[in-house]
């Protein structure tokens, strides 16, 4: 039996009489990458932000690593790593200093150099946030999510708006984190991202979970129901052409 590190039971949140999250329940196992999938406005971010202690739910419970995430938000914040959908960090500070500020806010003694190494930004140590590319900004945000050695990392649409190279690079980084034993809950609206990264996914629509399983099982279930893809899948995609032409190195 796998150990659950996140337990969500009957969580609901309404905005102006409309359910953003409607009675959802799921469990995330320790060490897995769990994906919340769905179109924009499905309720992914609201769910994640309730778990992060940024939004209080109307009802339901959420437990992370045995701690009540709704009542004990301060304690929860110290054991989780957060990358928000909208990221911005201080102007007029370099990356080393930005990470140092967050280490202080998390009362952590981690060396910012080690964090920069983990997210492959050592060469940008003296650069300011504004000088980074989109992919580098996301890696910095993930680096900051690591300053407190979290048990669970929340990544909210980490690759939205990135080019294919930067996206693949970030996938590699996320897989590395999993390799280090971190549990990751990520939201995305890219199906190929979920397929590539996630051990299990929950598909959300209108605030409700409509399916929950591993990507492979969801696909086999669909096939066994008699579904046939309308078109033969290409052996290579335009994404692959782009990658092949421009190389895999980071920008």
């Amino acid at each position: 039996m796998k150990q659950s590190i996140i337990i969500v039971n009957n969580l609901s949140k309404k905005y102006n009489e409309v359910y953003a999250v409607n009675d959802i329940s799921f469990k995330v196992n320790k060490g897995e990458i769990f994906g919340l999938l769905g179109p924009n406005g499905a309720g992914k971010t609201t769910t994640v932000e309730i778990l992060e202690g940024l939004i209080s739910p109307d009802s339901g419970e959420a437990i992370i690593d045995g701690i009540d995430a709704i009542k004990n938000t301060k304690k929860i914040r110290s054991i989780i790593g957060i990358q928000l959908q909208q990221n911005a960090f201080f102007e007029n500070l370099n990356l080393y200093e930005i990470i140092d500020v967050y280490s202080k806010l998390y009362s952590s003694n981690n060396d910012p150099n080690i964090i920069l190494e983990k997210v492959d930004l050592v060469s940008k140590k003296d650069a300011s946030y504004d000088e980074l590319s989109g992919g580098q900004k996301q890696r910095l945000a993930i680096g900051i999510a690591l300053v407190n050695d979290p048990v669970v990392i929340f990544l909210d649409e980490p690759t939205t708006g990135l080019d294919p190279q930067a996206r693949r690079n970030l996938w590699e980084l996320i897989n590395n984190l999993k390799g280090q034993g971190k549990t990751i809950l990520l939201t995305t609206h890219y199906m190929e991202e979920a397929e590539e990264l996630c051990d299990r996914v929950a598909i959300i629509e209108n605030g409700k979970i409509i399916a929950l399983n591993s990507p492979q099982k969801l696909i086999s279930e669909l096939i066994s129901s008699g579904f046939k893809a309308q078109k033969k899948i290409n052996e290579a995609t335009l994404d692959d052409v782009f990658l092949n032409l421009t190389g895999k190195k980071l920008i």
Binding site: L54, L84, F89, K104, S107, I144
Partner: peptide, 12 residues
């Protein structure tokens, strides 16, 4: 820019 929100999400 959401910076204040990110700071708010820290234990401090």
């Amino acid at each position: 820019t959401g910076t204040l929100r990110r700071i708010k999400a820290t234990p401090a």
